[in-house]
Amino acid sequence: MKTVHLLLATAVSVLSGSATVYAQSSKIDEFKSWPQGTSPKEIGDRIAARFVASPHAGFNTARPPKVIIYPETCAWYGALIFAKQTGNKMLTKQLAERFEPLLGSQDTLIPVPDHVDYTVFGAVPLELYMQTKDPRYLKIGKTMADKQWGPPEGKRVTAESHRFYDKGLTWQTRLWIDDMFMITAVQAQAYRATGDQKYINRAAKEMVFYLDSLQQPNGLFYHAPDVPYFWGRGDGWMAVGMSELLRSLPKNNPNRERIMTGYKKMMATLLKYQAEDGMWRQLIDDPASWKETSATGMFTCAFITGVKEGWLDKKVYAPAARKAWLSLIRYINSDNDITDVCEGTNKKNDHQYYLDRKRNTGDLHGQAPLLWCATALLR
Rank of each mutant, 00 (worst) to 15 (best):
T305Y: 03
Y129L: 02
D337T: 03
K93G: 06
K93S: 13
T375V: 01
W76V: 01
R50P: 05
K348Y: 12
G168M: 01
F209V: 00
N255V: 06
A288L: 14
H365N: 02
S243F: 01
V227H: 12
I47Y: 12
L128E: 08
G58Y: 14
D335F: 10
V21L: 15
Y317G: 08
Y22F: 11
A203K: 07
R46H: 13
T361W: 05
V116I: 14
Y331N: 14
L15A: 14
R202S: 13
H56K: 09
G297H: 03
K347F: 09
E257Y: 07
A224D: 03
I177N: 14
F82E: 06
M279W: 07
L220T: 01
P35R: 11
A53F: 02
V4H: 13
L370V: 00
L355K: 15
L109C: 03
I259F: 09
Q216N: 09
L328V: 04
T10E: 10
P101T: 06
E127K: 13
W171S: 09
G297R: 05
G219F: 00
V240G: 12
K155F: 09
A376W: 14
G310K: 14
E257W: 08
A190G: 01
G344Q: 05
K84W: 00
M182N: 06
S39T: 07
W149L: 15
Q172D: 03
T20I: 15
A23S: 13
E72A: 07
V120A: 07
R136V: 03
K358I: 11
N253W: 05
G262P: 03
Q216I: 04
A188S: 15
T184W: 08
A204C: 02
Q215S: 05
A204D: 00
W325C: 10
E30C: 14
L328D: 00
A203S: 12
T86C: 08
D166K: 15
D166I: 11
K32G: 04
E42R: 12
Y77S: 07
A288W: 04
P55D: 06
D235N: 15
P151C: 03
F209P: 02
Q282W: 05
T173D: 04
G104L: 02
E100Y: 07
K308G: 07
D286M: 01
W176Y: 10
K314P: 03
A376C: 08
Y118F: 11
L15C: 13
E42C: 08
A83H: 09
A79H: 09
N252Y: 08
Y70E: 00
W171Y: 05
E292Q: 07
R281M: 02
I332D: 00
V240W: 14
I329M: 04
A374G: 02
E343P: 05
K32M: 07
K315R: 14
S16H: 07
A9L: 11
Q367D: 07
Y77M: 03
G366K: 02
Q367M: 14
M90W: 12
D235I: 05
L377I: 09
Y317H: 08
T305E: 09
G168V: 00
H223N: 08
S161E: 04
Q352C: 04
Q274N: 06
T293M: 02
V316D: 10
R98G: 10
H115K: 06
G58M: 06
A368M: 05
Y331R: 15
E153Y: 11
L246H: 07
I304P: 15
P65T: 00
K2M: 10
A62P: 14
I177M: 12
E257I: 02
